[in-house]
Design a protein around this nucleic acid. Structure first.
Lengths: 344, 344
DNA sequence: TTATAAATGACAGCGGTGGTCAATTTGTAA
DNA sequence: TTACAAATTGACCACCGCTGTCATTTATAA
């Protein structure tokens, strides 16, 4: 019923210590022994007891995920990826929703880490972009991985998984350009999220590359919300010279823009193309469904967790400390974009 | 830095055994001692090591939350409530998203429980409505609490937190009736979710009480999705005798209905009132914002967890085994409902 | 064969709980 | 006030399942 390390040791005909060695893939275990033990583990469907490992070892077998994100779909996707990685490596996941704007947020994070004896922490925006958090964690010597918006690995961004919003936005913009659009507007997300800035930069770069200088009137500040999209699109559609396409900084904004366009009797995509970003369930619930960029959040999360695990393994830290995987969200063409009216 | 039970014992001037007794609130600890120890615990900000407790004790200090729900907001709310309760009582929460339709789902749940040595499980639909899960858990002697749709406590529904969809739907319907509507349609959710049936029953009961017999043509089968709302409303608005109000089984359906109405140039709420259910963030992102019923999911989750904790405490099981709190979602009037056109 | 490295095992201990029993304190009735 | 029972507390041990340390055995090279 309850399989312990002793059962495995007995079946494999070795000491429990050797089983432990195999599980932690320590060096200096003979290949043959290694295989015998692995077979026994598999046969018994043995899974080490996390509590015991946490208690006994200096290492920890739990990682934490701290978040404060109004987008529940994002959080759920992240959790899924982290859990999968944890399951694979026998770790536990501690989730910790909290308020990023709290005054004692740094202390709260420290308390959490110390109390739960975490092996490491996965940080997403806004935490991943708060220098005081990173500093505090470094000070107390707790490992962490940040998921942040960025295109190029750099020494400053150690321990990061990068999401290349710049390139993705560049590609999306190209998609619109290829459809013949030249008057393209951009609805920004919250300024304090670097993703919004990165996406805008990618947008501008794509235009510039085509010899189109971005029109300041078409760049509308806002926030990551439906309302913001409604307002932004309304403003744009009342402009004397309307854009023929709108790049919304995320799907929610795009949905708002779609809504606004519909109110103004503007046909999508015949008269106006709209793109979103993120590929949230939201983007499929609009009509027409949104062209968007797919962010593989679960995969990103898995990768982040794997990074943490790999680093917490003794004897392999060298060279891996600055590993920085880069994910580029992929263009997903659906029905909210079409040829520029008048072109062709 | 790391506070253990020994530190507490020393500060309080008692033995570690007594500290342990206080923490597990065993009987036969003098009030004064109890307070001394509690003070010491508070002063040191001591929190027992969950790993050690899990490992040593017969009891467990983790509960599990198994879910398979496409509505991320619901899941996040539940998690929040569970976490809060866990924090308060020094428990850990293990989250386990999975596929309810998997063939080996029962075995999977059993494995989870056994491997993680869980104190209990919190089940939401669809798991809470699967008799095979309840049977399996009872068989292996693991405690669990189900959150299900139901209005009246009954011996059959042991260990349940009830969400009274019936009464809530009754109230919503009354709201529409009071606005003068009599031709009210109902857009159903998935048949296999009992919540849909309960809501429909409440709807019918309210009508019947006013002497209105529910019109079968106005009761539209469907599922808990935006598309379903779009289709359902389209059907209704093409009827020779249109309804003046639509009761959608949840906010997503309502949003779809809203969308559909807008396509048909129907003014909301001047020509048609629409209500949703759940008070999801979704309901605030429509225009106009939806009248809906607020389901206090976090609170419900907390309550469920507390039930689990209380039962796992030794020596208090009697009489509590069949406790069944009932939550009634509350009517939240926003702008998608208005007086029946023509009335008054 | 012997020195040396590689592979394995014995054992203590992580921070608590559970149990037993003795010691101490408290309450209570005579 | 005393005596005795009951309530409270502590001392101590084993143990949960695993890892860290160090000693021991085995294989390999010289």
């Amino acid at each position: 019923m309850k399989v312990t390390i002793n059962d495995v040791a007995r079946l494999a005909g070795v000491s429990i210590k050797t089983v432990s060695r195999v599980m932690n893939n320590e060096p200096s275990v003979k290949k043959a022994t290694q295989e015998k033990v692995s077979a026994a583990i598999a046969e018994l469907n043995y899974q080490p007891n996390a509590a015991a490992r946490n208690l006994a070892g200096t290492r920890s077998y739990s990682i934490g995920y701290i978040y404060d994100n109004p987008n529940a779909y994002y959080v759920i996707d992240m959790q899924r990826g982290l859990l999968e990685a944890c399951r694979k490596h026998g770790y536990e996941l501690l989730i910790h929703p909290t308020n990023a704007k709290s005054a004692q947020i740094v202390q709260e994070v420290i308390d959490l880490v110390q109390h739960a004896r975490l092996a490491g922490l996965v940080l997403t925006p806004p935490f991943s972009e708060m220098p005081e958090i990173a500093e505090a964690l470094e000070r107390i010597g707790v490992d962490f991985v940040r998921i942040i918006s960025g295109s190029t690995p750099s020494p400053k961004l150690t321990n990061c998984v990068l999401v290349d919003d710049f390139t993705a936005a560049f590609k999306i913009t190209n998609h619109l350009l290829e459809l013949g659009h030249t008057d393209i507007a951009f609805l920004c997300g919250d300024e304090e999220h670097s993703s919004s800035g990165e996406r805008l930069a990618g947008f501008k770069a794509a235009l510039t590359k085509r010899g189109i200088s971005p029109n300041a009137k078409y760049i509308v500040p806002g926030s990551y919300s439906f309302e913001s999209g409604v307002k932004g699109a309304k403003y744009l559609l009342e402009l004397p010279h309307k854009p023929t396409a709108i790049f919304a900084c995320n799907d929610e904004i795009a949905a708002g823009a779609l809504f606004s366009a519909r109110l103004s009797q503007v046909e999508i995509p015949q008269q106006l193309s709209i793109v979103g970003f993120e590929n949230s369930p939201f983007s499929r619930q609009t009509w027409p469904p949104l062209t968007t960029a797919h962010q593989p959040n679960s995969t990103i999360a898995m990768q982040a967790a794997e990074l943490l695990f790999r680093r917490s393994r003794p004897g392999q830290q060298q060279g891996l400390a600055a590993e920085q995987p880069v994910f580029i969200p992929e263009l997903l063409v659906r029905d909210s974009t079409g040829a520029c009216p008048g072109s062709s």
